[in-house]
Structures are given as C-alpha cells and as structure tokens.
Amino acid sequence: MNQELPPPPVIELIKVSKFYPPDVEALSDISFAIDKGEIVYLTGMSGAGKTTLIRLISRMEKESQGMLDVAGFDLSKLNHRTIHLLRRKIGVAYQDFKLLPNRTVADNIAISMEVVYQKTSVIEARVRNLLEQLNLSKKYDTLTAELSSGEQQRVSIARAAANHPEILLADEPTGNLDAENTARVMSLFYQLNRQGCTLLIATHDKSLFRGHNRRVMELRGGRLLTTGHLFPGTQP
C-alpha cells in the first residue's frame, strides 16, 4: 500500500506491427518500454525497421496494430488538433535531415523554437550555443543547401535538441560524421541526458555503444531480438 509506484515509462510499445502494402512487414509484434532518463540504442542492419520504429513513435505514421504510449500520450487518440502537444515534447533528428534548403542554418534550427513562441534573444543564444558545440559556428548564416551532408546532419541534430525536448529520437545521427564530430554529437547527447532527456538512438554502427555500458535493442527483419539488455563491454 505505502509502496511508491514507479513512474510510468516515457515510451511504451505493446505488440506494435507496421505493414506496408502490398506485403512488407516492416515491424512485427514489437513490445518494449523506456524509462525517463534512459539512453537506449536501437541497432540492426539496414532495412531492419529502425526508421519505421522512429516514425511510429513520432506519429509520422500510424501503426497497423498494437498500442503506443509516448510522453504520456496514447498515440491512437491524437488528431490534427492535438498532435502538436506530442511533437513539442520530442525532438527528432531525421535520417534524411528534413532541412529547408533555401533557409540559413540558424533559421532551420530556430524553427522548432519559433513554433512555441520563444523570445528571439533566447532563440539566438540557444542556436549559437548549439552551433558552437557541434563545430558549426561559422555556418550560422549559410544556406543549408550549401552544406556538406555531415554538416547538414549536425544542423538537423541541433534542431532536434534546440527546444530541450523530453525525448530525443536520433536516426543514424553519426552516419555521415568523422570521429571528431561523432564525439561532439555524442557529448551533446550525454549533456541533454544529464538534463533529464530520454534518448533513443538508432544506428547500425555498433562502435557507438561498444565499450559503454548501455542498453541496446536489436532489430532484425522487423522483429525485436532483445528488448535491451545492457550491452556487455567488449575488449578494444
């Protein structure tokens, strides 16, 4: 009776499947829960269903079966008038970046703060701080179309992080990055995590978490092989 209930997970999936016509089964029967403040890696080969899972969690697509609960929202109950409430709590770094090519780097990052009516001065300070951390300070006024793909990737990560989201979903965040910039991105992620952000990082690059004591979920052919044991540290 007097025992305290544990806080509910921030992401919970129960028997979630996603089919694409005619007969692609991108995800089947996925169940897992992620608690507040966790860092979880989602791994698996290309085509395993990582991107699809992230698209379902951020409500860019509707699940075919099952139940999703994210940041306290039952996703099946959200509609076009309430979807923004979910989106404001999650930041997503998309695999295809989704940057506006004819806008500057600063504009692209600011957009997620503008929609919640942040002060211009607050936005500018945050944007400069993020660009500093990701080694992009000189690109503040550059159009994103003129950036290399590694730079675009970091802009998309900065946009996801800008609003201090409760949940950050990153899809192959280091796919185009060299070792130094990978380290900068990861240290930004850990910093957000220390501030209470829950992270789900999809990657096929096992070196990102190898050697760290981190929770890893592995997808293969749309099925979850493990719901996240702590990856045993391996020898270098």
Partner: peptide, 14 residues
C-alpha cells in the same frame, strides 16, 4: 509544402 510539413513535425499548431 516542405516547410508546412516540417512545421507540423516540430509542433506547430493548426
């Protein structure tokens, strides 16, 4: 349309 979709994704209201 690209911008509108993005606005939707980053939590803009209708």
């Amino acid at each position: 349309v690209q911008k509108l979709e993005l606005l939707r994704l980053v939590g803009a209201t209708t």
